[in-house]
Design a protein around this nucleic acid. Structure first.
Length: 106
DNA sequence: ATGCTGACTTTTG
DNA sequence: ACAAAAGCCAGCA
């Protein structure tokens, strides 16, 4: 993949609001790269702290935290910003990144 | 080109 | 709800 696509994806991840989560596939979709969820995952995997990405706000399509060494830290970081993580799972209805709902007054 | 890998997703059973 | 299988696609050897 070209660096352009990589940068686009990184930019999208950076724009996930505090206290919300987005899925791998959702990010790929927003980047105009449907069916590239794994590509998004790869970018996160390859990235390091110097990228300063909110990697903890990226979860699986069903709201679960992707299992891997260090996954526990993700739950901690999310809870630190008031995101409920129950049994390794996040309720996307409530915490999923959705611009529509961001505009509503609840 | 070929075959395998994987912070994934969807379909099946 | 859970597990297995199948589908998926960029990257790499």
């Amino acid at each position: 993949m070209n660096d352009d696509a990589v940068n686009t994806i990184k930019w999208i991840i950076e724009s996930i609001p505090y206290g919300r989560v987005a899925t791998y596939s959702q990010i790929a979709e927003l980047a105009g790269l449907p069916r590239r969820a794994r590509f998004v995952a790869r970018i996160l995997s390859d990235s390091d702290d110097s990228d300063a990405l909110p990697w903890h706000r990226v979860v699986r399509a069903d709201g679960r935290i992707a299992p891997r060494p260090g996954a526990d830290k993700q739950a901690t970081r999310l809870r630190r910003e008031r995101v409920d993580v129950i049994d390794g799972r996040i309720d996307l209805k409530r915490y999923g990144w959705n611009d529509d709902r961001d505009m509503l007054t609840e």
